[in-house]
Structure formats: structure tokens, C-alpha cells
């Protein structure tokens, strides 16, 4: 379970105070409550100042660890983890297949758990550890699951593959690779349109049976 102590919001200090913020803080009984959007942006929007001016202030700082590397970013709250990975960090191994949590191509690990990065707001990843497909191999040495996918041809076009592999690794770590049937069920959150499913199952079985640490 996640420790609350380890949870830190972006340490941003608004540069302008205004009455709405003061009111807000007064109303909330705890002064530690943080309104994270710079008030200038909101104020500009309220006052219908040109949105283009306001836009400058619409970003929030985001600190997260991606594949072992600390990233200090500035993101809009609406940016998804997927878009941040692909468009800001150039980690394009994580794929966009549907953008609505319906295909699994965007699967990454957050603090070791597989999730759909397309339905994850980046700003909510503050302080988290993200692993993407790019972070799976150790240097030139492929992860056993990557090796097994190659050996068993667990893909054709390769587009769903990073998501499948991230899911496959999680599937074993979770203890859901006990049988072919269980693997199929626990790999059903990753659509493969080329139809590599049996090969994917074979790859996972091999890694599971091989007993390697995943």
C-alpha cells in the first residue's frame, strides 16, 4: 500500500494572491490544502483576458521517475501520462491505440502495477515510478519476456507489442500465469489485431516455466 507520507504534491507557490484563493483557503479548514493551478491563469480566464496569455500559466510542475530517471516536467493537468511519455519524453514505445482504455497498447507499470497510461492524468503521477517498454531491458540484455516474444513470434506489426509485454510481465508477477486459460483471461486487456494471441500465450508460458525472475 502506498505510503501517504511519500505523497508530495507539486511544490508550486502561486506568484499572485487573490481573494478567490484566500477565500478558498479560508473555507477549507486546513491550510495545507493546495490549489495547484496558478491563480493567474484562472483569473485571466475569469476576466476574459486573452486566453493566449492565460495559457502560459496553465502548466504545473510534475516530478516522476521514468525508467529509473527523475523527470522534472511542466504539464497541463489535462495531459495524460501517455501523451507526456510520447510527446514530451519521446518515449514512443508506449503506444496509443484507442486513447480510451479499450485496447491496452498504452500499458505501463506505475509503482510496479500495470495500468492504462491513456486514462491516467500525468499530474496524478507525481512522485511515482513509471516503467515503460524502454525501461525493461538491462542495457543490451533483453528482458526474458522480450526474448520469449521474439522466439515465439508474439507479434506481427509490433504496435500492440510493448503493451503486451508490459502486461505479460505483470501477469507473471501478479501470479496470473498459472495456466493457459488464466493467461488468456489476464492478457485480455491487450488487443492484438494481427492475432498473435496463441504465440503470446506460448511466450508467457515459457518465461513462467523457465522460472526466471521477471
Amino acid at each position: 500500500m502506498e505510503k501517504e507520507e511519500s505523497f508530495h504534491g507539486p511544490d508550486i507557490e502561486p506568484d499572485v494572491e487573490d481573494s478567490s484563493r484566500r477565500n478558498f483557503l479560508k473555507q477549507s479548514s486546513l491550510l495545507t490544502a493546495v490549489a495547484l493551478t496558478p491563480v493567474t491563469a484562472l483569473k485571466a480566464a475569469e476576466m476574459r483576458v486573452d486566453d493566449k496569455v492565460a495559457s502560459v500559466f496553465e502548466k504545473l510542475p510534475l516530478k516522476m521517475e521514468v525508467n529509473g530517471k527523475q523527470q522534472n516536467l511542466s504539464v497541463e493537468p489535462r495531459s495524460t501520462l501517455l501523451d507526456i511519455l510520447r510527446e514530451q519524453l519521446d518515449l514512443t514505445g508506449t503506444k496509443k491505440g484507442c486513447d480510451h482504455g479499450q485496447c491496452g497498447a498504452c500499458t505501463v507499470h506505475v509503482d510496479g502495477k500495470r495500468i492504462n497510461s491513456c486514462l491516467t492524468l500525468g499530474i496524478m503521477m507525481n512522485g511515482k515510478k513509471i516503467t515503460t517498454i524502454e525501461g525493461l531491458a538491462k542495457g543490451d540484455q533483453l528482458h526474458p519476456m522480450q526474448e520469449a516474444f521474439i522466439k515465439h513470434d508474439g507479434f506481427q506489426c509490433g504496435y500492440c507489442t510493448p503493451g503486451q509485454i508490459m502486461s505479460a510481465v505483470a501477469c507473471i508477477r501478479e501470479g496470473h500465469a498459472g495456466s493457459e486459460q488464466e493467461i488468456r483471461e489476464y492478457m485480455s486487456g491487450n488487443i492484438c489485431r494481427c492475432g498473435a494471441y496463441p504465440n503470446i500465450v506460448n511466450a508467457i508460458l515459457e518465461v513462467k516455466d523457465g522460472g526466471q525472475t521477471v
Partner: peptide, 11 residues
Amino acid sequence: FQYLRPATQQA
């Protein structure tokens, strides 16, 4: 949108 993370349930 404005993103808020009040510290406690009461907040």
C-alpha cells in the same frame, strides 16, 4: 481544469 489535492477528507 483546476486540479486540486486537498490533504484530508475534511478538506
